[in-house]
Design a protein around this nucleic acid. Sequence first.
DNA 1: TAGTATT
Length: 309
Amino acid sequence: MAEKIDQSNLIVNYLPQSMTQDEIQSLFSSCGKVISCKLVRDKNSHHSLGYAFVKYEDVADANKAISSLNGLRLQSKVIKVSYARPSSAAIKNANLYVSGLPLHYTHQDLDNLFGQYGAIITSKVLYDGNGVSRGVGFVRYDKRNEAEAAILALNKTLPNGFQAQLTVKFANTPNQKSQSSENSDYTDIQQSYGGPMRHQSSSVRYSPMAANDSPANSNSNNWCIFIYNLPQDAEDSLLYQLFAPYGAINNVKLIRELNSKKCKGYGFVNMVNYEEAYNAILHLNGYDVGENRLLQVSFKNNSKKTSNR
DNA sequence: TAGTATT
């Protein structure tokens, strides 16, 4: 018996590794009142596992989040927003690793072949940098027993169109990764946003080139945009809302007054690609955010001597 | 022959 899905509770997948729970909550708050937000982290290392749960007060807002945030590009990822299934033992460990696929095989082919044995949540074929299939992939079923059935039915078989034997097994979990990397082999940066405190500085791997806290930073993967004339009650989510339609965002930062926490009227958005950043500026400069406020939007580093105000 | 979806 399928348990009923709670349509106010969402799961967000494919989150950038550096995105914090606060940033996720901020982003999703743009669609309505969020009553809980939980970024799932590795128990030991506390690194983000790249997915989160967001629960809204209203189902209508959750639906809004699915329609407006699913497919949103953040850094190098395209996030997926969908209803969270009710948690149960039956849905755990239902991810399969498949190898020996013909090179023309797509994830749709996987769906067709594996769909006979259960409901597929997601499937994926891995490709190299040139877009050539690696001949391996993943199939995640709704239920563990469906995955087991697929292994029994398909492992070491030669389905139609296959030149080599198909191998189907349970995928490794994050803990049983590769063999000997002693200390964690994550190299991603934990973003340290301007927030008052973070207690993890000692364990944070730090790469100066990749850490883009400073608004002044601009390199080929990070184009810093300056936004002026924001309303006092602006939130990070406003910046996400405004800029996300134009392309991949690295991060956003709203500058606030120390005491009142109100927006000082300006902020920064870091975008990945020059073309998209340029296009965003083109469309958002002069944008009317209400109350007769026209945004001034430009690249941060264009040394204009703007002393207006 | 290896990404990361169940709190």
